[in-house]
Amino acid sequence: MTAEGERALREELERLKKVDRPRITQAIAEAREHGDLKENAEYHAAREQQSFAEGRIKDIEHKLSHAQVIDVSAIAHTGKVIFGTTVDLINLDDDSTVTYRIVGEDEADVRNNMISVGSPIARALVGKSEGDEVVVRAPGGDICYEIDQVRHV
């Protein structure tokens, strides 16, 4: 994962442990005070939140303990597409442009143009250089791109 991805996971973990966990514990305590737990919707909702939060904490701790963090800014700028680079592409069919950043699976967010290194687009781009033409095999058909610029940001 990228250094930014690791930082975001650590921040989420901190929030879950120091903000969400105490808030949920308090909600459970308050719901218990309302009496019969069998029919107490607030109690069951708080327990469900607790279960989700604890599961997410374990998931993040596991990911961080097994992550290999790659700082792209420390890598030599070769003009080639590698993990962590930001790539500006030109669609050769309609001359539209799109920018993607190639990140780890846990960081992928298509709405923010951050794509997983294992995605079809990233797999087609990795190892290519500025000026290369790339064909991406997509479910809707092949898309031809030209790599306009590769940035190590």
Results as ranks from 00 to 15, higher is better:
residue 89 L to G: 09
residue 24 I to W: 02
residue 126 V to F: 05
residue 27 A to S: 15
residue 49 Q to Y: 03
residue 13 L to E: 02
residue 25 T to S: 12
residue 40 N to S: 03
residue 98 V to K: 13
residue 91 N to C: 02
residue 60 I to N: 04
residue 123 R to C: 00
residue 60 I to F: 05
residue 72 V to I: 15
residue 113 N to A: 14
residue 131 G to R: 07
residue 112 N to V: 08
residue 55 G to R: 00
residue 19 V to G: 10
residue 32 R to E: 14
residue 74 A to Q: 14
residue 146 E to T: 15
residue 108 A to M: 09
residue 51 S to T: 14
residue 150 V to M: 03
residue 77 H to K: 14
residue 131 G to T: 12
residue 90 I to T: 09
residue 120 P to M: 01
residue 92 L to C: 09
residue 47 R to Y: 09
residue 71 D to H: 03
residue 119 S to V: 06
residue 147 I to D: 13
residue 101 R to S: 15
residue 121 I to K: 05
residue 80 K to S: 13
residue 16 L to G: 10
residue 139 P to C: 06
residue 100 Y to Q: 07
residue 93 D to V: 11
residue 17 K to Y: 01
residue 145 Y to P: 10
residue 19 V to F: 05
residue 95 D to H: 14
residue 19 V to S: 08
residue 19 V to Y: 01
residue 12 E to K: 12
residue 77 H to W: 01
residue 143 I to D: 01
residue 49 Q to M: 08
residue 135 V to M: 11
residue 95 D to Q: 15
residue 136 V to K: 10
residue 73 S to L: 12
residue 32 R to Q: 13
residue 121 I to D: 00
residue 47 R to W: 07
residue 55 G to M: 00
residue 103 V to H: 00
residue 110 V to W: 02
residue 16 L to P: 02
residue 109 D to P: 02
residue 34 H to P: 00
residue 141 G to E: 12
residue 143 I to N: 04
residue 40 N to W: 01
residue 62 H to P: 00
residue 136 V to C: 11
residue 55 G to C: 01
residue 40 N to E: 04
residue 43 Y to T: 10
residue 70 I to Q: 12
residue 104 G to A: 06
residue 83 F to K: 03
residue 129 S to H: 13
residue 21 R to T: 13
residue 101 R to C: 07
residue 99 T to N: 08
residue 123 R to A: 02
residue 69 V to Q: 01
residue 107 E to M: 10
residue 52 F to Q: 11
residue 129 S to Q: 13
residue 38 K to L: 07
residue 128 K to I: 01
residue 19 V to L: 09
residue 138 A to E: 11
residue 11 E to K: 13
residue 66 H to I: 11
residue 54 E to D: 15
residue 100 Y to M: 07
residue 43 Y to A: 08
residue 26 Q to C: 03
residue 134 V to Q: 07
residue 69 V to C: 04
residue 97 T to N: 10
residue 66 H to K: 14
residue 99 T to F: 04
residue 143 I to H: 08
residue 101 R to T: 15
residue 86 T to C: 00
residue 57 I to N: 12
residue 106 D to R: 09
residue 105 E to G: 14
residue 65 S to D: 08
residue 146 E to N: 14
residue 135 V to L: 13
residue 89 L to S: 09
residue 140 G to C: 02
residue 75 I to G: 07
residue 42 E to L: 11
residue 85 T to D: 00
residue 52 F to N: 10
residue 144 C to R: 11
residue 142 D to C: 09
residue 109 D to R: 13
residue 14 E to C: 03
residue 130 E to Y: 10
residue 80 K to V: 07
residue 91 N to S: 05
residue 116 S to A: 13
residue 91 N to E: 02
residue 68 Q to Y: 07
residue 95 D to L: 11
residue 127 G to D: 01
residue 23 R to H: 06
residue 61 E to P: 02
residue 97 T to F: 09
residue 148 D to V: 15
residue 100 Y to K: 09
residue 121 I to G: 00
residue 131 G to M: 06
residue 139 P to E: 12
residue 85 T to I: 00
residue 129 S to L: 07
residue 47 R to K: 15
residue 31 A to N: 04
residue 29 A to F: 10
residue 92 L to M: 14
residue 134 V to M: 04
residue 26 Q to E: 14
residue 92 L to N: 06
residue 90 I to H: 00
residue 77 H to N: 14
residue 54 E to T: 12
residue 123 R to D: 00
residue 86 T to R: 06
residue 143 I to K: 07
